[in-house]
Amino acid sequence: MIRPDIFTETATALKTIYDNQLPQLRQLKDWQSKYRILMTLGKELPAFDSEWHRDEFLVQGCESKAWLLHYQDPVTNQHFWAFDSDARIVKGLIILLLVQLNGLKAEELAHAKPELLLSELQLQQNISQSRSNGLQAVLNKIKAVM
């Protein structure tokens, strides 16, 4: 069973990151400081039950794994996400995608280009080229709910 509050807790954490760490990341210039923050973003997220590390939720990258849970609010039609990854940097990058996507409705998702933030922050120039970390696969899966 997936406890429904994982989605509200994740949403709160993503909001915190959007308000606090994201502005910091935008200001930093050197890669070390940026990665230092990126690698700790995952700590903000609520605990992800290990029983959710199931194949049905798995998005397989070549090197790392990510698990993605989805919930659509029946009243507002918003899409909410909870997730985990076994690699810290990938987890941080997914967070930076989801701070932009969490809670969007299908029509908003269709137009979203969350990957632009990663190139703006110079964290990942082109996510479609790096099939290996699975980021594109995560994005495809999110967009596939539409």
Partner: peptide, 11 residues
């Protein structure tokens, strides 16, 4: 995760 270490080396 080995992928994380490789990313920091790639940087």
């Amino acid at each position: 995760h080995p992928a994380d270490l490789a990313t920091l080396l790639d940087q």
